[in-house]
Design a protein around this nucleic acid. Structure first.
Lengths: 108, 108
DNA sequence: TTAATATGCAACTTTATGGTTGCTAAATTA
DNA sequence: TAATTTAGCAACCATAAAGTTGCATATTAA
């Protein structure tokens, strides 16, 4: 369907998913679906859908235990996002001036 | 409507927009809408829409010159995305083990 | 002035996305 | 065993997103 980095960006583009991910990152233990959805306004099924999307990117992993599915965060996939970003980081500071002066300099 | 960071993530979540942004970053001069859209399969209007979205985040800036609108990239807004990422970077390496061992350690 | 070029705007279509409700099934507790 | 809890699945709905075409308009070139 779509490449990995696109899936990652789309996953974290949703505010609710960023919240879920964050909650799991700072949690002191793995949380069940119900425990997670209690922290949000939306229905359990809504949260489940978000978790599935996060799980598809690897940002959330799960472990079944009886009728529970405990979820925990794995920030590692964000490394790829970071790698994407680092390419552009070189233009953040001094290069901005250059970019802005393209028109003046080169008179396209 | 939606907060800045969400707009940023959504903007770069689209592969075509990442391509447009990248093309502008590595371009040696500012490019007109037509010049940009010639590099893509899709219609000029399709590209225009993407550029508008990028422009709304500040990732692309424009300068009108007669009938042309020259576009250039400004990677600065990505700083905010980077800031978001850096919080999770602390969990990338050694902490993954901890995350994965939540269940074992705490026996939730 | 006529023709060509660069662009914006609006309407429309298709598909994705975010969310809901209802039902079923498995695991746990009383 | 009966009741409760946890969760998945499927259907459905509303809105957003990605892309298209057609037309109008301003600028530039012949």
């Amino acid at each position: 369907m779509q490449d990995n980095i696109t899936k990652l960006f789309k996953a974290i583009a949703d505010p609710t998913r960023r919240d879920i991910f964050h909650a799991l990152v700072i949690a002191t233990s793995a949380l069940s679906i119900t425990q997670i959805s209690n922290q949000f306004e939306m229905s359990r099924q809504g949260v489940t859908k978000h978790i599935k999307i996060l799980n598809d990117t690897g940002l959330v992993q799960m472990e079944e235990q009886g009728r529970n599915r405990f979820c925990f965060a794995d920030p590692k996939p964000l490394k790829e996002v970071n790698k994407w970003m680092q390419f552009y980081a070189q233009f953040w500071d001094d290069s901005l001036g250059n970019l802005e002066s393209y028109l003046d300099e080169k008179k396209v």
